[in-house]
Design a protein around this nucleic acid. Structure first.
Lengths: 203, 203
DNA sequence: CCGAAAAGGTTGACAGCGTCAACCCAATAT
DNA sequence: ATATTGGGTTGACGCTGTCAACCTTTTCGG
């Protein structure tokens, strides 16, 4: 049945299985007992590896951030910095569309306190750094922008736009609005265009 | 103890109490049994008024949308349309900051299926219409914009930016980044400026 | 090499949850 | 006057996370 290659430790299998559940049904449906059941072990076995539910969740989230960062890095590259930024924005939105439940897990779900889970925190920072570095390398071309507009703010603005669209597009609220599938494409391209205009008012 | 004016029906008190719990501890902590306990009734009493947990949640969410819409409408008004739009954006971000758990409830939590809860759906649409109408009245000044950029898309773009910032600012992810309180003010003003630039590239 | 300890698995219990079922009383409608 | 229904009750079921106790097997120090 389990075609997945068996990981060395049960600890890893717990994370795998938890991620399966989250991808299929959302983080709200995650239960340690169900994880144990799928692994064919007793309901307390996972507790030998994770002290609480939050700890297994933190491990899953850390893995998601790493995967998300890799997904962003794997985008097609462009010579032109602005085109490359656009490509990264599209990659961001693609991830949110392809893996909505994992995206929700990372950005729209209540996570265990980050300070208690440094590994999760580190992986989250790394994902953000990818975006920030992209913008930093853009800004060296335009020193005036750097001075009073640190790249970190640009990165957070960009992230806000991308996250806002990604989050709204998968939100239940939007189901209450008439939004054709074709509209989604338009929204994405319009947002990317305006994001470019906002960051680069000159051209 | 209960200084709140007693509503006529237990149904209303259920919604009040549920909202209290959500504002204090978040939607995840909401339980019908706790609602019943606080009202001093049996754990099944609320079920006489709401068939399932989702139905009480939908009622609470509907009330939140109505309150949110009223909050947006209560903003200071400006003659100039762009200034008025800016004021609405600030009102949006203020609401998210003042009532983070209610904001999360509306936009970042898994809601009961909207089609099963038409009242909730209607109130959500009304809140969105406020934003859309603001943009529509802007666009009559500039017919060229109306033609290939329907106001609905502008409204969704604007909403994405606002929601993205509001959502990220209260996200657990951001706790992993070094973000000073002063930075938040800067972020808000920068986002509003860029939003204006994106919507109104001419000036 | 042997005994201690630790790692990793087990079963059993507990309280809290949403929900179903049955019962019960008072007001209302026929 | 009687039947129906609205609104309350208690009790149960299976689910959850978590604590406690117990039992092997592996590892390691003397």
């Amino acid at each position: 049945m389990a075609t997945r290659a068996k990981p060395d430790t049960i600890k890893e299998s717990c994370i795998d299985t938890a991620l399966d559940i989250i991808e299929a049904d959302g983080v709200e449906q995650l239960s340690l007992r169900e994880v144990a059941r799928r692994l064919g072990v007793s309901h307390q076995a996972p507790y030998k590896h994770f002290p609480t539910r939050d700890h297994i969740l933190a491990a899953v989230v850390a893995r998601c951030y790493a995967e998300f960062a890799a997904f962003l890095e794997a985008r097609p590259r462009h010579q032109d910095g602005w085109a490359d930024l656009g490509e990264m924005g599209l990659a961001y939105l693609s991830y949110a569309r392809e893996f909505p439940l994992k995206y929700r897990l990372m950005f729209n779900a209540p996570l265990p306190a980050p300070s208690d889970h440094p590994d999760m925190m580190a992986k989250a920072r790394h994902a953000f750094d990818i975006l920030q570095n992209r913008l930093t390398s853009l800004n060296v071309r335009d020193v005036a922008v750097v001075v009073d507009h640190p790249a970190r703010h640009d990165a957070l603005f960009t992230w806000s736009c991308l996250h806002g669209l990604a989050s709204l597009m998968q939100s239940d609220v939007l189901h209450t609005l008439p939004l054709e599938p074709a509209d989604r494409e338009v929204l994405v391209s319009r947002l990317m265009a305006r994001l470019g205009a906002a960051l680069n008012p000159g051209c």
